[in-house]
């Protein structure tokens, strides 16, 4: 910018959050709750995008949308109590204000009718960004089969356990697994990567959406690639420390990409090309 330009447009402030109201809080597990937030102006967001969510006095954190944007009226965030800000969010009650800015990021480019099969792989809280996709397929169906492989720490840690039946009746093959089972658990135990044989998916024609801890993402992507899934159809969303969400603060800079503005959704091809994961 040249200092010259005479016209002084009152630039809007990209860091200014808008106030939202917490309509509903649903406790999902010991440390994870689902917050439904409404705002005065309509919201438009796509699966895989995120908002910078803040509590004044505690700070801001990026949280991906856990709901499908259908009627513009609300957005849901699935929040795990992990630090100062998420702790502060958890201390809020229904009716309290939560401050938002966004949505940011590219989001998943999910066609309502994907060609071929769809494989969703989630680990822990990583189910949250995939939930809108699941909801979409559960509602509208898909051309091929849709399989969800979802790993959690223990039976009590399965977020959205209450929705699994809904998803199943929507035609989604939900395979649950836990690291540490107990006697009440009727699903599998072990890592998601041990359960490939259970996924009824034509790997070479399928598209995969993955979200979870970095170590899981890495091994899942590597496996799927070996099974012949094209790298550009292995899609994941990356987590990173972020302070701004708009490509300025530098925290999420990885390789030549900003996870906040160039991502957070990347294909395995991009991840390899830009070495985004170490």
């Amino acid at each position: 910018m040249r200092t010259a330009s005479g016209k002084r447009t009152k630039a809007e402030n990209i860091y200014l959050p808008v106030s939202g109201r917490i309509e509903e809080i649903r406790k999902k597990t010991e440390d994870v709750s689902l917050f439904r937030v409404s705002t005065a102006s309509p919201l438009r967001y796509t699966p895989g995008q995120f908002f910078m969510v803040s509590v004044w006095g505690a700070g801001e954190v990026p949280i991906s949308t856990a709901s499908l944007c259908e009627d513009d009226l609300f957005v849901e965030f699935c929040v795990r109590k992990a630090g100062t800000v998420t702790g502060a969010i958890h201390s809020l009650q229904e009716g309290d204000r939560l401050w938002l800015r966004g949505p940011y990021g590219n989001g998943f480019a999910v066609g309502r009718r994907a060609n071929g099969d769809v494989l969703l792989v989630a680990g822990g809280i990583g189910i949250a960004p995939l939930r809108p996709i699941i909801q979409m397929f559960a509602k509208d169906g898909s051309a091929g089969s849709v399989t969800l492989l979802y790993g959690s720490k223990g039976p009590q840690d399965v977020v959205f356990m209450d929705e699994v039946q809904v998803w199943r009746s929507g035609g989604i093959d939900v395979i649950l697994t836990v690291d540490r089972a107990n006697c009440d658990w009727r699903g599998s135990a072990g890592l998601v990567t041990d359960l490939w044989h259970r996924a009824r998916v034509d790997f070479s024609r399928a598209t995969a959406y993955i979200c979870g801890p970095e170590i899981m993402i890495k091994s899942v992507m590597r496996d799927l690639s070996l099974f012949g899934m094209p790298d550009e159809r292995i899609i994941t969303t990356l987590e990173a420390h972020m302070k701004c969400g708009v490509g300025k603060c530098g925290h999420c800079y990885s390789g030549p990409k900003y996870i906040c503005t160039d991502g957070p959704v990347f294909s395995y091809k991009e991840i390899k090309e830009y070495s985004l994961l170490g």
Partner: peptide, 18 residues
């Protein structure tokens, strides 16, 4: 150190809707 719990033998075949 927690006792290593054995993975259950029960399958979730009955839970699956295919």
């Amino acid at each position: 150190p927690r006792e290593v719990e054995k993975p259950p033998v029960v399958d979730l075949e009955d839970l699956r809707i295919t």
